[in-house]
Amino acid sequence: MSKPVKTEAELIEMAKAELRVHADPPEGMVISIIRDGDSWEFRARAGHATEAKPGYPEAVAMLVQIGDHLAKQYDVKG
């Protein structure tokens, strides 16, 4: 049984919405999707000033959990 398909933009918006519920991500955190064959995962990146802000490590850890959850539910379009 195949999973529903979402675009990268849709998945990133879903992640941002869920992240705001569970963590306090600092401004400047950029989320992208990395694909590996049929699987995918989120990546976060930011400048040094953003990485040094309180809550950044927790937001990245939460993003990993959100990505694990969403990757089990959705495939990436394209």
Rank of each mutant, 00 (worst) to 15 (best):
H48C: 09
T7K: 02
E41F: 13
A49T: 14
A17T: 15
M29A: 08
I33Y: 02
D36L: 04
M62H: 00
K6I: 09
R43K: 13
G28C: 05
E41G: 14
D36C: 14
P26R: 00
A23G: 05
E58Q: 03
Q65L: 14
P26T: 03
P4I: 01
K3P: 14
V60G: 11
I31D: 03
A44G: 15
G67T: 07
R43D: 09
E13D: 10
F42H: 09
G78E: 03
E27G: 08
A71V: 14
V30P: 12
P26I: 09
S2D: 07
V64Q: 02
S32L: 05
E41Q: 15
G28N: 01
G28V: 00
P26H: 01
A17C: 08
E18N: 07
E41L: 08
I31T: 06
T50K: 00
T50A: 13
E51Y: 02
H22G: 13
E10N: 04
K6E: 06
A52P: 10
Y56M: 00
I34K: 15
S2Q: 13
A23N: 02
F42Y: 10
K6S: 02
D36E: 11
Q65M: 09
A44T: 12
L11G: 12
P54L: 06
V76G: 09
K3T: 02
L63C: 07
A23H: 02
I12E: 00
S39T: 08
Q65A: 11
K6M: 13
D75W: 10
Y56H: 01
A44V: 03
L70K: 08
L11F: 05
K3L: 14
V64P: 00
K16H: 11
G28I: 01
A52C: 10
A46M: 12
E8K: 15
K53Y: 04
A71N: 14
V21D: 10
K77F: 12
I66V: 12
H22V: 15
S39P: 03
S32P: 12
I34M: 12
K16P: 06
V21Q: 11
I34N: 13
D38M: 10
H69Y: 10
E58A: 10
T50N: 00
L63T: 02
I31G: 03
I66L: 05
V5E: 07
V64G: 03
S39M: 11
L11C: 07
D36H: 13
K3F: 03
I33H: 07
Y74F: 15
V30N: 07
S39E: 08
I33W: 04
M1A: 10
P54F: 06
S39C: 04
D24W: 06
A15F: 04
D68I: 10
L11E: 04
A9E: 15
K53E: 09
I33C: 13
D38L: 14
Q65N: 03
H48T: 08
V76P: 13
Y74I: 02
W40V: 04
